[in-house]
Design a protein around this nucleic acid. Structure first.
Lengths: 120, 120
DNA sequence: ACAAAGTGTAGACTATAGTCTATACCTTGT
DNA sequence: ACAAGGTATAGACTATAGTCTACACTTTGT
């Protein structure tokens, strides 16, 4: 698919997608058979990858971190053990974030109790 | 306490604290009895408030959102019902974030399974 | 009394992550 | 064939959240 379809299906602007591509989060392929243009084609599987990027961003990972993870993942320079290790580090980071969220959540729930008791 | 103590105890730089103060997240009080300077004094209770700001930031709230919440909270313009409502909205946002984290976590855990099965 | 360290303000600078504009070329429908 | 719309690239611009510098004044230790 071309950039506009990718944009529609991922609900990211063409600008943002190009920014991500230039950043190195993914890349499209120019059809070598076509000499008249250099339109880039994006694979069906990219949809899922972009969705993951979106999720990762929303939960607070930076583009640099996401790129690092994707690079490691698709490099084939990493052994299976290393890949598992990389993933476990990220899982630990996520668990830490979940804990923080639960702390702030508790703070807010306590706040509601205070209000209901008239302490505020 | 003065700014340097606040900085040490919150582990935020003086620059950042001044930025937050100027942003309106909190404010120090100038001692009216002292005419020679306009050093600002910060209340003991601010430590906890700043910690909350730090937590909220880390879990992805922007300064604008945090300011909105704090303003509502300390405004006394809100009825108890409104306050509870505001808090419930934030709790719902946090729950959504936790769900997202769990989704990405699952993705990574599945990734580990793939690696272990040799799919990657 | 003097130097060193603390405080306040303003404004410049940086990094991250876009977002937009201009320009030029290409494709498609009629 | 031609207008309308799609694509690529480069570079300018924006917003958020700091971070740093310069300058002036104040406080404190010796």
């Amino acid at each position: 698919m071309l950039i506009s379809e990718l944009s529609k299906r991922t609900e990211l602007s063409i600008h943002t997608l190009r920014y991500y591509e230039k950043y190195g989060l993914f890349k499209g392929e120019v059809d070598e058979k076509v000499k008249t243009n250099n339109y880039k084609h994006y694979d069906e599987s990219l949809i899922e990858k972009v969705e993951l990027i979106k999720e990762a961003k929303e939960i607070g990972f930076t583009l640099a971190e996401i790129k690092g993870l994707l690079d490691d993942w698709y490099s084939n320079k990493l052994s299976a053990e290393k890949k598992v290790e990389v993933l476990n580090v990220k899982i630990a980071e996520i668990d830490a974030k979940i804990l923080q969220l639960q702390q702030v959540r508790k703070f807010l729930v306590d706040g509601i109790e205070d209000v209901k008791r008239g302490d505020c």
